[in-house]
Amino acid sequence: MTEGDGDGRSSWSRAVGVISAIGPPVTVATALLFYFGWARADAQAAYMGLNVSLFGYTVQDYLLISINALFLPLVCILAASVAWLALDRLLRRRIEEDRGRAVILRAAGIGALVSGLVVGVSLVLAVVDRTRTALFSPYLMALGVLVATWCVHLRRLGRSSRVPALSAEQRAVETTLILSIVTLLLFWGTADYAQALGRRLAVDYEQGVQFMPRAEVYSPKPLGIGSGAVTEVKVGNGEAPLYRYDGLRLLVLSGGRFFFLHDGWAPRDGTVIVLPDDNSVRIEFRR
């Protein structure tokens, strides 16, 4: 085997290691974004008396819906992760150099106990009072699990000379279990947060419906819109009948359909008007 072959294999192994390390987090993040977008849209549609399938959202639509709300939290999480990695590298170096080893191990033990207590209390609060605490409890539990695991690893590193090292199979099982728990907790927290955000956005439509684009719908046939806030005006004649509908506000165009609210719309007793995006009607928009 030549030196070039050895270097080539080493480079390939490092590349595979990087891909395997980056791939799962990216996959989990994408799945979380999609699930957040779907859960938010589903809760928002349900609060408005609709089914989310009516909007015909695609996977890309759900991802775009979620990014707007999760952009700041994701930036904060990434920044915290960078700081965490720097702190972990510093503490591991000090343990290996035997500088403050006892203090670090004592602090790691306390951190593991406190993190376990946080996980337990958060779980109890999430089960007992879901209306107020469940929104953030899954995230606190995920953080507690990660911190506790990190503290245990630091103590294991500091006591490596007295405690037998885990085998590769044991480390793989441990990592898989921890990642599975954290992933499930993130999905739990994402669902609760997305549903709360979706319901809040539906309520916000009541206060902001007057700022939505005003729409006038023209149709050669009566549409029979049941809302009293929408007025029907006959603007054509007997030979060329034409009906105009006023009082509509554009909500969204999705899945080949126009979704309209009306002036004074409210989630309690409002009506969502759905019209096809085709040549059967003509729509004019204005402020």
Rank of each mutant, 00 (worst) to 15 (best):
47 Y>K: 15
115 S>G: 03
211 F>L: 10
155 R>I: 15
141 M>I: 10
271 T>W: 02
102 A>Q: 10
11 S>R: 15
225 I>E: 00
239 E>D: 14
273 I>C: 00
5 D>E: 15
153 H>L: 15
181 I>W: 01
28 V>I: 15
241 P>A: 06
121 V>A: 13
131 T>W: 06
50 L>E: 00
208 G>P: 09
46 A>W: 04
287 R>Y: 12
75 V>L: 13
158 G>K: 01
277 D>V: 15
76 C>Y: 15
123 L>Q: 04
137 S>N: 11
269 D>S: 05
180 S>M: 15
234 K>A: 15
137 S>R: 03
9 R>S: 11
137 S>W: 05
154 L>I: 10
257 R>N: 13
203 V>C: 06
18 V>K: 06
283 I>E: 02
185 L>W: 02
41 A>C: 04
65 I>W: 00
90 L>T: 10
41 A>P: 03
32 L>S: 01
94 R>Y: 05
58 T>N: 08
42 D>T: 09
258 F>T: 08
283 I>M: 06
187 F>S: 05
47 Y>V: 00
189 G>K: 07
80 A>G: 12
186 L>P: 02
246 D>A: 03
180 S>H: 02
261 L>H: 09
219 S>K: 03
286 R>H: 14
64 L>R: 07
6 G>H: 11
153 H>Y: 04
175 T>F: 02
158 G>P: 05
10 S>C: 09
280 S>V: 07
260 F>D: 00
256 G>L: 03
264 G>Q: 11
189 G>T: 01
142 A>F: 06
161 S>P: 10
162 R>P: 06
223 L>G: 06
122 S>G: 03
258 F>P: 02
274 V>R: 14
120 G>R: 02
89 R>M: 08
35 Y>C: 09
46 A>R: 00
87 L>R: 11
191 A>E: 15
251 L>T: 04
223 L>K: 13
254 S>Q: 13
175 T>Y: 07
116 G>E: 08
45 A>N: 04
252 V>S: 05
10 S>M: 08
158 G>C: 07
161 S>E: 14
